[in-house]
Structures are given as C-alpha cells and as structure tokens.
C-alpha cells in the first residue's frame, strides 16, 4: 500500500524541504520506490536541494492542467535508484493547484510508488492545506523555538480537521514529530527549548531529532540531500529517522551535550561534522 506523507510545519525556514529531500532519499536508499513532490508553487526549492534544477522541463502545475504527463514531469534522481522528483512551478502561483487535480495526481502515483512525500509550503493557506489534504501520515518539522512550536501546534490542529481523513471520519492522519536544528549546548544554556518541552506541548510521537549542523547548509548549497553525508551527524540522524519511519526501533542520539576535550573547547574545534 502506497503511503502519502506530508512534510509540513506552518513556520517557514525550519527545514521542511531539507527534511523532505533527505527522507525521500533515505526511503529510496532502503529500496522503497519513492517520489517527492514540491507543493511550494511559485517558490520552488526542492529541485535545488535535490540537485536537479537543470533537468526541470515540466512541473506539477503542468501535470494538473493536463499540459504534460506524469512521466514527462517526473525527474529520475541520479544518485539513488527508485527516487523521483516532481518539481513545482516557478512561474505560477498556488491558485494553479486544484484539489481535484492533486487528488488525481496522487491517485496515479499511489499505483506506482511505495512512498509519496509531499513537501508542503510554509503557512496554513491553500498550498499547505492541499499538500496535507490527502496525506496518510504527516511529519511535522519543528525547531526548538517557541514560535515554531506554536505554528506546529496549529498545523496539528489542521491535520486533525482539514484533511480528507478528518472529513471522512476515517482513521486520523498519523502524526510524527521531527525536531530540526537542535543544538544541545544552546538547550543547556537555556537559549533553546528542550526536547521534553517540545514533546510535552505537541504531545505526538517523536520520529527524529536532527542536530544543528554545518553539513546541512553546505549539502543544500551543493544540491546533495544531507542524508548522503553519512559522516555528518545530521546525515546519520536522518538515516535514523528513515529507519523509524519504516517501523524500526532506533535509539535517539545527538540530543545530549557532547563532552568536549580541553583543546576542542580552547580552539573551537571547527564545525559539528
């Protein structure tokens, strides 16, 4: 059974696209046939992070409006087998998406793929609501920050009321919490919310915790999903996250302050890689 998973957050800039790219890549690396769809029409970013921006011909809006077929619009990933990208349009806006059109596209993809990852735009408007509407599961991306947690809370409210599952009254959308940009040092010093604070407020199951890492920025600038950087702790954390999404039990890591040696503290020790 194909699963539609929306990666959403409410707030912008928390790492939705980074997470959608890495989760989709990770699932494909585990042999699952996966497509990742950019719903951020007008502000397309996913193709950049996936490193396929030069191969975009047709996009989601073209497919919905019948100007191109799905197979024409989907881009096959060069690094991982079984991974496809359906980019967003840069020139249209979110009104070009229709609920019927999205339903139709997802229906076709469901027959072909194991996982369909929907990268939601920020906000709670039409674009974000369409991205989540047909989801079976949701990954709610949250930063350890008060405003991000509140926006995620709002999104969880929408997931429970505005999705197809909620409207039909069938089994609710399964919600997962993914905390990104977590910096244990700053949590200890009180600059960031603790893991427990976030879990207590949002009260949903924790899927993963991605530490703040320089690898994320450099990877996205190079167009490589950070999950490929298996030497970085962010890459490892995404691998763990994907394993948990596939139902495996993996202990949590990177949530505690690392014990730094005297010399590292003196000289900074460079970035966390």
């Amino acid at each position: 059974m194909a699963k539609v998973i929306v990666v959403t957050s409410g707030k912008g800039g928390v790492g939705k696209t980074t997470s959608a790219a890495s989760i989709a890549t990770g699932l494909a690396m585990r042999g699952q046939k996966t497509v990742v769809i950019d719903f951020d029409v007008g502000l397309r970013n996913l193709d950049l992070i996936m490193g396929c921006e030069r191969r975009v011909v047709y996009d989601l809006v073209n497919v919905i409006q019948g100007e191109a077929g799905l197979n024409q619009a989907m881009i096959r990933d060069k690094r991982v087998e079984n991974l496809f990208i359906l980019p967003a349009s840069q020139t249209r806006d979110k009104d070009a998406l229709t609920q019927e059109g999205v339903k139709d596209v997802l229906g076709k993809l469901r027959q072909e793929f194991d996982f369909i990852i929907c990268d939601s735009p920020a906000g709670i408007e039409r674009g974000a609501q369409l991205a989540m509407h047909f989801a079976d599961e949701a990954v709610v991306v949250t930063n350890p920050e008060v405003s991000s947690v509140r926006d995620s809370d709002r999104i969880l409210g929408l997931l429970a009321s505005k999705t197809q599952r909620a409207e039909e009254g069938s089994e609710p959308v399964r919600e997962h919490l993914l905390i990104t940009r977590y910096n244990p040092d700053r949590v200890t010093s009180g600059d960031m919310l603790t893991l427990d604070d976030i879990r207590e407020i949002l009260a949903i199951e924790l899927l993963g915790l991605i530490p703040e890492s320089e690898a994320v920025l450099s990877a996205s600038n190079q167009g490589v999903p950070v999950i490929h950087e298996s030497a970085s702790d962010a890459g490892l954390a995404y691998l763990d996250t994907v394993s948990r999404l596939l139902g495996e039990e993996v202990p949590l890591r990177f949530h505690q302050t690392s014990k730094k040696g005297f010399l590292t503290r003196m000289f900074g020790g460079g970035g966390r890689r």
Partner: peptide, 14 residues
C-alpha cells in the same frame, strides 16, 4: 446533557 467532554490536546487556533 449539555456538559461537553473533550479528550485530547486543544491546539493553537482551535
């Protein structure tokens, strides 16, 4: 009859 019981988290915006 009009007492209402709600189970679960009442989230932001609800």
């Amino acid at each position: 009859a009009s007492t209402r019981l709600y189970r679960g988290t009442v989230r932001s915006g609800q």
